[in-house]
Design a protein around this nucleic acid. Structure first.
Lengths: 127, 127
DNA sequence: ATATGTACCGTATGTCCTAATGGTACAACT
DNA sequence: AGTTGTACCATTAGGACATACGGTACATAT
């Protein structure tokens, strides 16, 4: 699996990693159970920070596209193929689009929406 | 109706105006049909910019707490009493709270929620 | 020892938004 | 002429945030 990152690109590096790994899964270039390079290894190869790679891996694991097994390394998730077609962000965007449309129709200012949004998001959790 | 503004306060000046005028309505200090000082007049009295007062008036009119009649001036709305108890912002906050709670339960990062939110809000309109 | 993922501290840069300011101008009316 | 609300141009200061970086440390395994 070849991974490249374009520093000049407008899309964040961690995002490029996520997309490329998902594509590799979808194109069958990697199979469930296949090992991925370690965070430090990949960061070293691509000449980027560990944290950036770790962030990409964290997101991929949340989406159940990869599986980290602690000291044993990281592997492609058994259901990777199915899970990487599920776009969580697209779903979030769709939901927000509907919600915000309702607000706007009610005459709520974008500024007010932003403020309310910030208030809610900055609450301890569970909100 | 006495209106004061605290420049030092953390709450924006336009917001202070909105709250004070709503309170004056609720406390019966002003009645429907009563005239409000003109935007320029109030801005001059409180030593603040026209735009800031205009912003407060605009929000108050959207909430049907006041009524602007163009060159004739601005007046307390007939249904001001009822309308100023309707808190549009509280409704927005409640809706957002529920929506965001759903996202979080699905494992969506706050950061991702913010990005999706910004994307949706920064679209031409109607979205 | 070496490697794994992970967690914490922090810094720097750039972007976006808010709030508030200033000036100019308009149509409509007194 | 003067006033009304409103619209456009603009700037300033401040905050919040994303991205990416650096260093250090941990338990767990080989």
């Amino acid at each position: 699996m070849e991974i490249t990152v374009d520093i000049e690109s407008a899309t964040p590096m961690f995002s490029q990693l996520v997309m490329q790994i998902k594509q590799a899964v979808q194109h069958g270039k990697v199979a469930p159970g296949d090992p991925l390079p370690s965070i430090r290894q990949l960061a070293n190869d691509l000449e980027m920070n560990n944290k950036t790679v770790a962030k990409a891996y964290r997101l991929l694991e949340r989406d159940s596209v990869i599986q980290t097994k602690g000291y044993r390394g990281t592997f492609i998730h058994p259901d990777a193929m199915a899970n990487c077609t599920v776009d969580l962000n697209a779903w979030v965007t769709k939901q927000l689009r509907e919600t915000i449309a309702t607000f706007r129709k009610a005459g709520v200012t974008d500024s007010e929406i932003r403020i309310a949004f910030a208030d809610v998001l900055n609450q301890p959790q569970g909100g």
